[in-house]
Structures are given as C-alpha cells and as structure tokens.
C-alpha cells in the first residue's frame, strides 16, 4: 500500500491561495488517477491572520483513507515551504519518516539552506526552487496591498482569481511532482494556470540528494 502525506507551510492570507492551490491540485490529480485523496486546510488554529504560519494538508493513497477525520498530517512525507524564511521558524519536520522531501521557495541553494533545517537527516532530498523569480519576481512586493484586500479571512471564498496556481504555486507544484512523483505530470499540468512558470521550474530545480537515516 502506498500512502503519502504532503504538508504545505504558508503565510496566512497573503499566500493562502498559493498553499491551497498546491494541495487542491495534487489531490484532484490523484483522484483523476483513480487514487484516494484528500486535501484540507488546518482547521484548529484559526489560520486566517495575515502572515501567520498556516498549514495545508494533502493525503494520497492506493487504499481508502481511514484517518480522513484527523486534523493534521502526523507523518508528512513531503513538506513545502511556500515562503523561504519559514525554514528557520518552526519544527515543520516533526513526524517525517526517513526518506522525505523538503521543497523550499528560495533563491538560495540547498547547500546553504540545509543548515537551517531541523532534523535534516530524515531527508532523501532537499529541493530549492526560486518560485518568486519564475512566476514573476514582482508578484508579492507589488501586489501585496491588492492581495491583502482581495483575500481577507474568507478561507478562499471571496477571492476574485479563480484560476489554479497563477503565481508562485506553479513552480512549487512542478518541484513537488517532478521530485516525488506523487501524481503524474501529465495529469496535473492541464490544471495549472501559469504554464510558463511551471515548465521553467522543471529545468530550474536545485536538488540535493541525501542519505536518510531513521531517528
């Protein structure tokens, strides 16, 4: 049986959609491929505050998911940090079984970033992708006010932009799918709005392979 947990760490409201798009598109693709899948947002800690760390979850399995009603991913195999400075802030590696993947949106190299990762010995690979540059380097700095006004704390209900991954989510999805094979590239690619960033990211991933050990 193959069962995979993906946890996305992102920033409340301003990057909420980016995190949500990652888990929603991957779970939808898994469903299309005939697998059992589930995507949800962290429910219990009121994640709708600007800039606060929030989590999005995805579960993909060959068999029916029996822990569907549990709030959090307890053993994430894949972790995505939508915003690079989160690498220092929290024990996002907690519960990861040996052989996991960490994807970070950053312009730094994996060799530089690994020093900040708590418990890196569990990783099979550390993937860095400069998603902000690939999507549009102005995406956040120039649109911050607009994003803040558009998104509010409505868990996605009041967003004007209905397209999936128009911004930095596209390169991050490319990084996850290419390095983990959680779903097929051909299944997810048609859903992605920013195809250019998605395609470019496939060739611009900085991957550090590691030898994971049990802790």
């Amino acid at each position: 049986m193959s069962y995979t947990e993906l946890t996305v760490w992102t920033r409340g409201i301003i990057m909420d959609k980016e995190g949500r798009d990652i888990v929603n598109s991957i779970s939808a693709s898994a469903r299309i491929e005939g697998k059992y899948a589930q995507a949800m947002e962290n429910y219990v800690d009121n994640p709708d505050r600007t800039n606060c760390p929030t989590r999005k979850y995805c579960r993909v399995s060959d068999e029916i998911i029996e822990n569907e009603l549990t709030y959090e991913n307890e053993q994430p195999n894949i972790i995505v940090l939508v915003e690079g400075t989160m690498v220092k802030g929290w024990d996002y590696m907690r519960g990861m079984p040996p052989g996991g993947t960490l994807v970070i949106n950053t312009h730094y190299t994996p060799e530089y970033m690994i020093r900040f990762v708590p418990g890196p010995e569990r990783l099979a690979q550390l993937v860095c992708v400069d998603a902000a540059k690939l999507a549009d380097h102005k995406w956040l700095y120039y649109r911050l006010g607009e994003l803040g006004l558009d998104r509010l704390s409505t868990e996605g209900a009041a967003e004007r932009n209905k397209s999936i991954a128009p911004d930095i989510a596209a390169p991050l999805i490319a990084a996850v799918v290419k390095t983990t094979g959680i779903v097929k590239m051909a299944t997810i690619e048609p859903m992605i709005a920013n195809k250019k960033a998605f395609e470019m990211a496939l060739n611009e991933l900085h991957i550090m392979s590691l030898n994971p050990v049990a802790v």
């Binding site: 589930q38 995507a39 949800m40 947002e41 429910y43 219990v44 009603l69 709030y71």
Partner: peptide, 8 residues
Amino acid sequence: GFFVSHIT
C-alpha cells in the same frame, strides 16, 4: 464541524 463541514 470539521469532520463533515470541512472534509470534502
């Protein structure tokens, strides 16, 4: 709440 309301 959550178990039905927020589970797809």
